[in-house]
Design a protein around this nucleic acid. Sequence first.
DNA 1: TAAGTGATCTCT
DNA 2: GAGATCACTTAA
Length: 172
Amino acid sequence: MSKILKSDFFKSKNTPQIARDLLGKFLVRRYQGKTTHCMITEVEAYDGFKDKASHAHRGRTERNKIMFGKAGHWYVYFTYGMHWMLNIVTGPENYPGAILIRGIEGLNGPARLTKALHIDKKLNGKPADKKSALWLENRGVKISKNKIISAPRIGVAYAGPIWSKKKYRFYI
DNA sequence: TAAGTGATCTCT
DNA sequence: GAGATCACTTAA
């Protein structure tokens, strides 16, 4: 039984809670006639204006404006000169929230994931549905709470001791 | 452990 | 316009 996650899912709760709920859900990619599905095993939350680790903490820019947009859209951006990152936008409009999808089953690391699934900026700003060829499904997999580990986020030491230590990273 | 890589942001 | 920065990976 599989059910596509709609935008309601991404604004029903606050961002860290949604992030935790995404574990065990499936990322589905349709590319060149083939469909790939992978279970999400690692995510990070980026929530609100005050989160110094978030791109949005200095306000809206040309790049991060997607984060201020509607929940359930993809925010894809390029960094380190070679890596794509895949995020799903959360929260109400004009509130900057997003969840970075860091890992799927059998493949760890956010940039490896996007490379494996041929994700690039063409998907930036697209809604997460079948039309965009990249979406999320609930396939009824339940992850018991004691398997979920929360930890500080990766690569955000610059955000200072308070925000870099927030346990906004979740993995199985 | 360090270097590669280039878009984006911030300051002149 | 120039310089710094960066939600990472790979190869040693």
